[in-house]
């Protein structure tokens, strides 16, 4: 029992980080599953959300709410703009999308660093949230626990939308059969813009709300992107439910890895991904998902 107790903070930390990753990765899953877009600028959108939070928070609760809204809005705008950039590449394959979005991430990422500097910029949180809170015998920053609650609610709401609403049904139909949706008369440009805007909004929101946990930086953008990609692959390309389970797994592996064996933590993730790919054929966990 003592062993479990010693690891509890890491496990909770893993859940926090996992939920953060899920918010980001769900956007990537959506973009890939619905619009067949591989977006390597997704980590940069996370950065944008983080900087938005830094600019808007002022220590008040209202500032925090505004920060969430600002991050979401900035992410949505960025995402929509990306769709415009990707549209001319239709039919040229994923590598071109990858190169283009990677180029965008380099340009925007470095512009952001030039504007904001490379020091870590923490958002200004209400004092209450900076206090440690005792939970099951350990201290946690209050914000982390709030974040778990908020992200958990968001995930639940998202689940309901995807599985119960008409929009959700349309989304799932598109993941299964993109051509069919085209035949339904829906404008593909609008779909692309809409999907990337939503994906961007999710990443921006994660960046804004997650900034106290993982502040905006090029390194953070990179890490978040890479881990989101692992989540999308392991969770089943296009499966939101799968991404949720995968995100929690990746969050745990990363946090425990950093705590227990820092030199090996990068490989743990890759090994987990390789095992997942080898064990399942085709990759599908919970809801839908596409095979390549």
């Amino acid at each position: 029992m003592d062993l479990l107790d010693a690891y509890l903070p890491h496990v909770i930390g893993g859940v926090t980080y996992g939920l953060l990753l899920f918010t980001v990765a769900s956007g990537l899953t959506l973009a890939f599953g619905v619009a067949d877009v591989l977006n390597l600028a997704h980590g940069t959108v996370f950065m944008v959300g983080g900087y938005a939070a830094y600019l808007v928070t002022d220590g008040s609760w209202w500032g925090l709410v505004l920060a969430a809204l600002a991050g979401t809005a900035a992410g949505a705008v960025f995402g929509g703009a990306l769709s415009g950039a990707i549209m001319p590449l239709a039919g040229r394959g994923h590598m071109m999308q990858a190169l283009l979005t990677f180029g965008v991430s380099m340009v925007v990422g470095n512009l952001l660093v030039q504007v904001f500097g490379s020091a870590e910029l923490r958002p200004d949180l209400p004092d209450v949230l900076e206090q440690p809170v005792v939970f099951l015998g350990h201290n946690y920053p209050a914000y982390h626990l709030l974040f778990i609650g908020a992200a958990g609610l968001l995930a639940a709401a998202g689940w309901l939308v995807v599985t119960r609403s008409r929009v959700g049904a349309l989304v799932r139909a598109m993941v299964d059969d993109q051509d069919m949706v085209a035949a339904l008369g829906v404008n593909p440009k609008l779909v692309l813009a809409g999907v990337l805007a939503v994906a961007g909004a999710l990443a921006g929101l994660a960046g804004a709300l997650g900034a106290p946990i993982l502040g905006p930086s090029l390194h953070a953008a990179n890490t978040v992107l890479l881990q989101s990609l692992v989540i999308v692959v392991v969770g089943g390309l296009g499966s939101i439910g799968g991404a949720f389970v995968a995100a929690l797994l990746v969050g745990q592996v990363h946090t425990l890895g950093v705590a227990l064996a820092p030199e090996w933590s990068p490989y743990l993730l890759f090994a987990a991904m390789a095992v997942a790919l080898l064990v399942r054929r085709p990759p599908q966990l919970l809801v839908g998902g596409r095979t390549t």
């Binding site: 390597l40 994923h94 990858a98 990179n222 990609l229 993730l269 080898l278 390549t292």
Partner: peptide, 23 residues
């Protein structure tokens, strides 16, 4: 790493190799 990587195609292959490069 080949046997695992080479089972995949297209985007998944891209993402896997990206992860390998980064790691």
């Amino acid at each position: 790493i080949g046997p695992a990587v080479v089972r995949t195609r297209g985007v998944v292959f891209l993402m896997l190799t990206l992860a390998v490069g980064e790691l």
